[in-house]
Simulated scan of single mutants.
Amino acid sequence: MPRGAFRIAYDGRPFHGFQRQPSVPTVEGALFDALRDLGVLGDEADKPPGYAAAGRTDAGVFGLGQTVAFDAPEWLTPRAYNGQLPATVRAWAHADAPTDFHATHDAASRAYEYHLYAPGADLELARAAVDRLRGTHDFRDLSAVSSGNTTRRLRTATVERDGEFLVLGVRGDGFLHELVRRLVSLVRSVATGVVPVERVDSVLTPGTLPDHEIPPAAPPGGLVFVDAAYPGLAFEPDRRGAESVREVFGERATRATRRGRLCRRIAGGVGED
């Protein structure tokens, strides 16, 4: 059976993270349940043959370029996959992969974005912080990992303003747990004047800061897993799958805008004593 790779988009809020867990809904669990309903995965099978995912995301994190690969029948298109997936999880592109392809180990890089609500933040200070984070560093104090090799390389790191939001984008060879969210917390502290930009250098020198000064993780809801890069693997967008992503997430965006408007109306309608 040929090996297929699928690009997966998802809203992580209804799930307890990406990785399958017993007794709670996860993105991976939804993917496996759909394959079982489609007859691709037997009732007793733990997971599809050759299965691997590009990475794990925490509860509440969104996905755009999450990638899963496994031995799949040729008829399993993104459109067919979506027929059994919940609306919050959509397959939108597919690639024929070599039989030894591994979605985790063969990823040359991964990219994330964080959409940070920071209307008063100084963009130039944020950029100064990001400039110091780019490159190869020991990120022990910017992760939930306390042992082992914590040196990683950020190939790119950028920050732009979009209305009242700062959008931070990073691409690296690999990411430690909570690295991106702690990086965001550090950049926010610099951009709002809470700490000087030199604090970045201290954070990148593990052991020099007391525990209470180590940046905490920013909330997961602003994070998007944007891309996993696989040189030589050509993903073909599925027209119906991509349309489904635009429809489902466009409608969810409209509902969120409406809820925000009503919440502001109620908040502004309460008279002060």
Rank of each mutant, 00 (worst) to 15 (best):
C263E: 06
R153N: 11
F175N: 12
A54I: 07
D37V: 11
D100G: 03
S109A: 15
L168A: 11
G221T: 10
E236K: 14
G12W: 04
T57G: 03
G260C: 00
R239T: 13
W92F: 09
R265D: 00
R153G: 03
D122G: 01
D96F: 00
Y81I: 11
E113G: 00
A54V: 04
D43C: 01
G17W: 05
D201W: 05
Y51R: 06
G63R: 12
R182C: 07
V68W: 02
V180L: 08
G148A: 08
V159Y: 05
V226R: 14
L168N: 01
A229C: 07
N82W: 01
V89Q: 07
S185P: 01
A157T: 12
R127K: 15
T151Y: 04
A34H: 11
Y81C: 09
R255S: 02
G120P: 02
L179C: 11
V195H: 08
Q84L: 12
G260N: 12
P14H: 05
A157N: 10
E74W: 05
A59T: 12
D173Q: 13
E236W: 11
L35R: 10
A107F: 01
P98Y: 01
A234P: 03
H177S: 07
P22H: 07
V187H: 10
H16I: 02
S202V: 00
A107V: 10
G207N: 11
R252P: 06
E251W: 12
E74V: 14
V170R: 09
T205W: 01
D138G: 08
P206S: 02
F175Y: 12
Y10I: 08
V145F: 00
C263W: 06
Y230D: 00
D46L: 13
A95Y: 09
E178G: 01
L116H: 08
D58G: 05
W75L: 03
I214L: 15
A93I: 09
E247S: 13
T88I: 03
S189C: 06
R56A: 03
A91D: 05
G17E: 05
P14K: 03
F249C: 06
A253R: 15
D141F: 09
A157R: 12
A69D: 11
L176V: 09
V130E: 07
A69E: 08
V245W: 04
D58A: 07
T26I: 11
S147Y: 14
L179E: 14
T192M: 02
G39D: 03
V167G: 04
G268F: 01
Y114Q: 03
A87M: 02
